[in-house]
Nucleic acid binder design. Structure first.
Lengths: 341, 341
DNA sequence: ATAGTTTGTGTAAAGGTTTACATCATTGCA
DNA sequence: TGCAATGATGTAAACCTTTACACAAACTAT
């Protein structure tokens, strides 16, 4: 039953009394084989406990059943749930996923390129807006690939993201509905499409309310907690103060809250704050953070589905999929305080 | 230069004017080949851009260069940093890692077992205290394996963890040094060795200070935020109150803090709180949480190093590696309030 | 000079699978 | 009945490596 060495297709063939070709067909093209034969083969497989040797199969087929997922930072709170979506979808189609993190290091990226070249991955999921392969990026021969969150700079790679404009619009509309008129935007000046889109949502929302953007209360940070804290400091040195802070992401919002609390202000009594992403800690802040939720698992699922489509068809049906983000109302937003309204 | 199909060892051999065997030797046993030949081969490799086809190599060798990492939950805040340690160590030895999450579902576990059986992974890293393969666990033929955090139930599998007793001791000693005498312990009754060891550290610390465990202020939860909150509720219904809460992990500590704040108490003014793990959000709590830091990256590194040793030697030098956790002093601990001392 | 050893390289088999092609039996149709 | 078409199965090559074994040349020690 359970020998020391795994059963091969040959063992199965011998027991089922057919050729190895028939066994292979019974497994992969069952309609091509007679019912009675298929039965015999299936029994033999059960008896031997045979599982296809993936190395041999990949070698013969010239492609593996692994998908490489490259992210700059595995620890990113946005990452793990997307990974779950990716993994579920992949596995249910017979693929496994393999993760790599580059930490924005081109050398690391290059190792993954070598990995791809040695045929070990059939496809590629990229969490970064650029190809992380350093100077070889231009000549890289890539397998079918899909981007997550952002279009990949080099072009031609479809991607799955979130409708940032619509999401930002939900945040700004909430603040306006609560009565805020002077709403600061704490942005991210790094060249990521997601961030500039959120800014567009902010502008559009103000515009729709007939308010217009006041650049004195727009601050460009870098998406970190520290940058949120810094933005508060800088804004308090200017001549006009907002009643609310709309932040480009949750990290920034956390920083803003820290900065405001350090100055002795109450949230949302003195200032309202919104984030974007709904990272796990958002709910544990005090007050808990009102934010825009990224449908992370769904993003992962769609990205992998798109990649699998690419793998079988060669051509993607869609070149861009934007999912709808949802407003999560918690306790960091209220009516503006009468004093500064 | 960059053809449509990747260069094979044969292309290299032709250009270097040697046999494929020599090319293989030049790569993997360079000392077995003449200097001049090695030079020719290296040049040919550079010209062709050859990279070894990992599938063919694995097939021939009968083992892959992939390590499977199985965790119940990828989203666990403890997970990602350990993963980084694992990944760095693996990659620097020519191995890649592959992650899978079981969500404690035996069916999922079984798929990974099939994966292992099809020779796709040379080794296994287990984040769970039991083999996640359901009823086939007993007969499973496993590759070299290493556990992380906990010994694997089935036995014979070395593991890398943290010295929980020493860690817990650091927490209890700090509280005692601050003057606390009545220190509650909020534990985790699930059968995880780590948790019972932390309890042992608590008992030992009290004992060393000549205090002794007061079971009226020991609560067994399940390690979740909610269980921490609940513990507070229950403790306030008993006839004796502690001045400090030592929690089995950070999640529990967060729950305790939420519970205490809900009752209007100040931390650390009215009650001190300690956690264990130092999850990323610990520093963002208000007050920030004093806790015991798991050396996560180091754990990953050691676990992978141990596995690689297993893969080459067959026998592990150590069967258990416990790393030293460090106290991280933040703002959730102070001298007990005079009122309840 | 000879026998034995070392060094460097080549030949060919093996690893497990998929699939083009060949073969044979069966069926359908004139 | 004969012939073509269809269906089911088998044979063997190919995918790309690694390595045991064989062989030749160049040393070493007598």
């Amino acid at each position: 039953m359970s020998n020391s060495t795994p059963a091969t297709i040959e063992d199965v063939a011998r027991i089922a009394n057919v050729s190895i070709a028939t066994v292979s067909r019974a497994i992969h093209m069952p309609e091509k084989v007679a019912n009675s034969t298929r039965l015999k083969v299936n029994q033999a497989i059960a008896v031997t406990g045979y599982t296809t040797n993936a190395m041999a199969r990949s070698l013969r087929l010239g492609r593996s059943n692994m998908i490489l997922v490259v992210a700059p930072d595995i620890g990113d709170p946005n990452f793990s749930n997307i990974l779950i979506g990716l993994e579920n979808e992949a596995r249910s189609h017979g693929y496994g996923i393999l993760i790599g993190h580059t930490q924005n290091d081109a050398q690391r990226g290059l190792e993954y390129l070598k990995f791809l070249n040695s045929n070990q991955a059939a496809g590629l999921i990229l969490f970064t807006g650029i190809l992380p392969f350093g100077h070889q990026t231009m000549t890289a021969r890539l397998p079918p690939s899909v981007g997550v969150f952002e279009p990949v700079f080099n072009g031609g790679i479809p991607y799955v993201g979130v409708d940032d404009i619509a999401g930002a619009r939900k945040a700004i509309d909430l603040l306006i509905a609560e009565g805020h008129r002077k709403i600061a935007f704490i942005g991210d000046s790094r060249t990521r499409l997601a961030y500039s889109r959120r800014r567009m949502g902010y502008d559009a929302g103000l515009d729709a309310a007939g308010i217009g953007t006041d650049l004195r209360i727009v601050f460009e940070g870098d998406g970190t907690i520290e940058s949120g804290r810094l933005a508060v400091e800088q804004l308090f040195m200017r001549d006009t103060l907002p009643t609310a802070f709309m932040c480009v992401n949750d990290q920034t919002a956390i920083g803003v809250m820290i900065g405001l609390k350090a100055r002795g202000y109450d949230i949302p009594g003195d200032f309202s704050v919104t984030g974007f992403d709904d990272v796990p800690q958002a709910v544990f802040m005090s007050p808990s953070l009102t934010t825009i939720r990224q449908p992370r698992t769904a993003i992962g699922k769609h990205a992998m589905a798109l990649l699998l489509e690419l793998l079988s068809d060669g051509q993607p049906a869609e070149t861009e999929i934007l999912l709808r983000p949802d407003l999560v109302v918690r306790n960091s937003v209220s009516t503006p305080s009468r004093a500064r309204r």
